[in-house]
Design a binder for these strands. Structure first.
Length: 449
RNA sequence: GUGGACGUAGCUCAACGGCAGAGCACCGGACUGUGGCUCCGGUGGUUGUGGGUUCAAAUCCCAUCGUCCACCCCA
């Protein structure tokens, strides 16, 4: 044997590729239901992009990037995370178009490169499924990103997922928190690990993130960011929790979730699952309201998630086998699964599909959110207007975007337990009992395949 | 890698030394709960970037970056 694969990278052999294809097809399918469109960006970018976006003092930038010079002398870096390239492409291709307030929802499946000590669930090349929602500050969008991710885990049979939720504040309120954090830790600084002594100076928020036992003891009594949030951040954090409640999603507040990238503001979250040892995070993300501007664009709020597929597949094995590990499936069986999910994913672009939930006014908003989530969970393509615009604007948008149906939910409908279902092709509409909407849509989609 | 052409609003283009504009698109309204048609109003620009010439530069000159085309190479 003359050559071996480089340290920390893997071959995906035919015996296991079926599980990858199944996971990828599942993710694509769910993204379609939730209205996220795929984007594919280059595997390398200008090094400067990651330094600016991720932050010079992060572990990723300071010691984990695969950076090289090409023959023209440019400094390039293999993608160490998924969000910065998407934001770069979002700006460069003007994906927001002419509507400056438009919410742009993107997903990707991409290899990620980080130079780190390999261990179970940590590799120098791994793969992430990610989603980014750019253009809305509405906390319900944070909840949507979470809901999409959880539906992915669930579809793969990973049931024991815990959502850890925190807020890391914003440039207005974070400095006050860091001040208190530093003051609290200062007396014990000499007892902390070398990394933390460095973090104390350069990136104090990450003190909370240290896995060393002594360091954790020291920071255990530190003030929580949640108590220090400014009015806007506090309101947003409450809004995220309210939206999660509306969607029926449980969460655990965890003040240590801070994320290893500097661009995060407000919401930060992680998903953890059993069976992974020390690397128990199977996904994470948060809001990054300053990142687009940081990358040279107009002020644009954003929120996103990254899901590590290697870890998801490990967690899936654990879940399916009750913890014992499972033999690779025969390829034929998994081929069938891929085909079945893939079949749902195939739809000519010119064909109208999906329901646009038109929520009207304060009375319609939360019922609308819940309805949208219910439809997606039942396998329908569904969308909602997070800008909460006029009926007229929402119908125009739904039509232009090619939706097949509009489900109108205003004060009148909510009061009567009804939904107005409008056919956007014929213009006909009828009042349908809210409880019967899903089966009505399912009948319609069978009647017009 | 070699040679050439071109960079003006999201798109297609105009202005070719003298106030940066049009059409389409987008947002809003007419119609405060009904899309497409029509009409009205509005947002949108460091003229790729940096130098130079000039009273004055989108316009002329130089450099640079990028895109496209041909060749080369390749998948």
């Amino acid at each position: 044997m003359r050559y071996r694969r480089p340290r920390g990278v893997n071959d995906i052999t035919p015996a296991e590729v079926g599980r990858w294809q199944y996971a990828e097809a599942t993710y694509r399918h769910l993204c379609r239901l939730y209205g996220y469109q795929e984007i594919r960006t280059p595997i390398f970018e200008q090094t400067e992009l990651f330094i600016r976006a991720v932050g010079e003092d992060t572990d990723i930038v300071s010691k984990e990037m695969y950076t090289f010079q090409d023959r023209g002398g440019r400094s390039l870096t293999l993608r160490p995370e998924g969000t910065a390239p998407v934001v770069r492409a979002f700006l460069e291709n003007n994906l927001q178009g002419q509507d400056r307030e438009r919410l742009v929802k993107l997903y990707y499946l991409a290899p990620i490169f980080r130079y780190d000590r390999p261990q179970a669930g940590r590799y120098r090349q791994h793969h992430q499924a990610g989603a980014e929602a750019l253009g809305s500050a509405n906390p319900a969008v944070d909840a949507e990103i979470v809901a999409l991710s959880l539906s992915f885990y669930q579809a793969l049979g990973i049931e024991q997922v815990t959502l850890l939720l925190n807020s890391v504040g914003c440039p207005a309120c974070r400095p006050r928190h860091l001040e208190r954090l530093r003051a609290n830790v200062q007396p014990h600084l000499s007892e902390m690990c070398a990394d933390c002594r460095w973090r104390f100076e350069a990136n104090p928020l990450r003190l909370l993130d240290c896995k060393q036992e002594r360091c954790r003891e020291i920071t255990a009594t530190a003030p929580s960011m949640i108590e220090m949030l400014c009015g806007e951040c506090g309101e947003h954090f409450a809004g995220v929790q309210e939206a999660l409640d509306t969607l029926g999603i449980a969460y655990t507040l965890e003040p240590r979730i801070v994320r290893g990238l500097d661009y995060y503001t407000k919401t930060a979250f992680e998903f953890v699952a059993p069976g992974l040892g020390a690397q128990d995070s199977i996904g994470g993300g948060g809001r990054y309201d300053g990142l687009v501007e940081q990358c040279g664009g107009p002020p644009t709020p954003g929120v996103g998630v990254g899901i590590g597929l290697e870890r998801v597949l490990i967690a899936q094995e654990t879940a399916l086998s009750g913890g014992a590990g499972v033999s690779p499936p025969r390829s034929a069986g998994f081929q069938a699964c891929v085909t079945s999910v893939g079949r749902l994913g195939i739809s000519p672009a010119y064909e109208r599909e999906g329901v646009f939930v038109v929520a009207l006014g304060e009375e319609g908003w939360r019922p609308g959110l819940a309805l949208c989530q219910e439809l997606r969970r039942a396998g329908q393509v569904a969308e909602i207007d997070y800008r909460r615009r006029s009926l007229r604007a929402q119908l125009r948008f739904a039509d232009a975007e090619g939706f097949r149906w509009a489900a109108i939910l205003g004060g009148d409908e909510v009061a009567q337990g009804m939904v107005t279902l409008r056919d956007l092709v014929s213009g006909e509409q009828e009042a349908v009992p809210r409880a019967g909407l899903l089966s009505q849509l399912q009948r319609e989609s069978e009647a017009r395949p």
